[in-house]
Amino acid sequence: MKLGAYRYWHETVLAALIAALMIGAAVVDPRFVSWKTQIALSSHVWELALLAVPMTAIIITAGIDLSVGSAMALSAVVLGLAYQAGANAWLAAACGIVAGALCGTFNGLAVAWLRVHPLIVTLATLAAFRGVAEGISLGRPISGFPASFTVLGLGTIAGVPIAGVIVALIATAAGLALARTPSGLSLYAIGHNPAASRFSGLPVARLTVALYALSGTCAGLAAAIYVARRNTAKADLGTGLELDVITAVVLGGTSIFGGSGRIIGTVLGVLAIHETREFVGWHWEHEELNAIVVGVLLIAAVLLNRLFTRPTR
């Protein structure tokens, strides 16, 4: 059997790594792998997972979105201010999500119509969105959301966190859309060769704007979940989250050059980062180690991927 014939090498290796980590953890500290612990710790990963889904699609088109953490902060602040102004918490959350969508649309328009490199656009909006969030909130926290709203971040359905259900639904929908729909498949074409895609009649500009808008919308949704969980909306939330998100997506096997990647890989990438981080923290109680371990994991995963896949170019 040829190694190259099996398409899921990266996912398999990643799943094996996670399994090995969990078995090791079970030996060292069985409490860590218990269902109860895992469910409780899972609340730390929903925002990351939610943002990683659209980021996968964006990176498949050879794009990138560095502004997701800042867009999340702006959405949260809009949510908070709307609530403070007397809106119902759920209506306020809708306002926040719209703000996130607008942020994303702005990025998308600059990328698709002005043809500015996405890294450059979102590097600028990384500063700008958080700046606006700081400006309109004057850096102050807004809290005191009702229990009917915080259930979004804290509540469970049949023992499974509501936020987790939302993330699972979105990831499944995105996975199917990428693999089965014409629009989803055309994203791979855009990533491989944008010019050829344009000439062959694909609505590249429209798809690009939609993709970044979607990323902003997910940032808005992530903001709502975060605010509900911590009962606070503030301009500094999600700082540095963009790098975690990109790390998770690349760890999941999506090529940063575009043209390849799968949601299932991203889900495993998110899981690998989450479990590694939580276990290192659980076992060693040294926050400094977290960064080192995740960095090594990222580089090692890409190197491993090189071993199992053939050079494509």
Binding site: I292, I299, V302, L303
Partner: peptide
Amino acid sequence: LLVTVARVPSIIATLGMLTILTGVGDL
């Protein structure tokens, strides 16, 4: 060397390095 010999995309190689060095600096 990571970028050329190991063919790790530069943004990933240096992102990994950024993360590792941040931790090393703190330690």
